[in-house]
Amino acid sequence: MKRILVTGGAGYIGSHVVKHLAKRGYEVLTFDNLSTGHKWAVKYSNLFVADLNNKEAIKKCIVDFRPNAVIHFAASIEVNESVLNPIKYYINNISNTINLLEVMKEEGVNKFLFSSTAAVYGNPLKVPIDEDSPLNPINPYGNSKKMIELILKDISQANSDFCYVSLRYFNVAGADKDGELGQVYENSIHLITRALKVIKGSIDKLQIYGTDYDTADGTCIRDYIHVDDLADAHLIALDYLLDGKENNIFNCGYGHGYSVKEVIETVKKVTALPLKVEETGRRAGDPAILIADNRKIKKVLGWLPKYNNLDYIIQTAWDWEKGLKN
Rank of each mutant, 00 (worst) to 15 (best):
Y307E: 14
I291W: 08
T316D: 10
L290E: 05
R168H: 13
I313W: 11
D130R: 13
K205V: 00
D32Q: 03
Y121R: 04
D239E: 15
V63L: 07
S144D: 00
I13E: 06
A41W: 06
L275D: 07
D132L: 14
G108L: 03
C252F: 07
Y307A: 12
V103I: 10
W318M: 11
R194S: 12
A75M: 01
N53A: 02
V83S: 12
E278N: 11
K55L: 11
H38W: 15
D130V: 13
K153I: 10
A292E: 03
D243Y: 08
R168N: 13
G255E: 04
D176I: 09
N294A: 01
K23S: 15
A216L: 13
I199F: 05
S202L: 14
N187I: 10
G108Y: 02
P137I: 09
L125S: 06
V17W: 07
H20D: 14
A175I: 15
K296N: 15
Q157T: 04
I291Y: 04
S95R: 14
G14N: 15
E81V: 11
E246I: 05
N68F: 00
K23A: 14
V70C: 09
D32R: 01
Y258L: 11
R283D: 13
S259W: 06
N308L: 02
K145M: 07
K126S: 08
N251Y: 01
T97L: 07
I155T: 00
A118I: 05
R194N: 13
F31C: 04
R24F: 07
R282C: 07
G179T: 04
L84M: 03
T97Y: 09
N46E: 13
I98M: 13
N92W: 05
I236H: 15
K19F: 11
D293L: 06
A118V: 01
C252V: 15
M147L: 05
L196H: 11
D212K: 11
I192Y: 02
C252D: 07
L34D: 11
I58N: 05
M1F: 05
N53S: 02
L135Q: 13
K146T: 01
A175G: 14
K2V: 07
V172G: 00
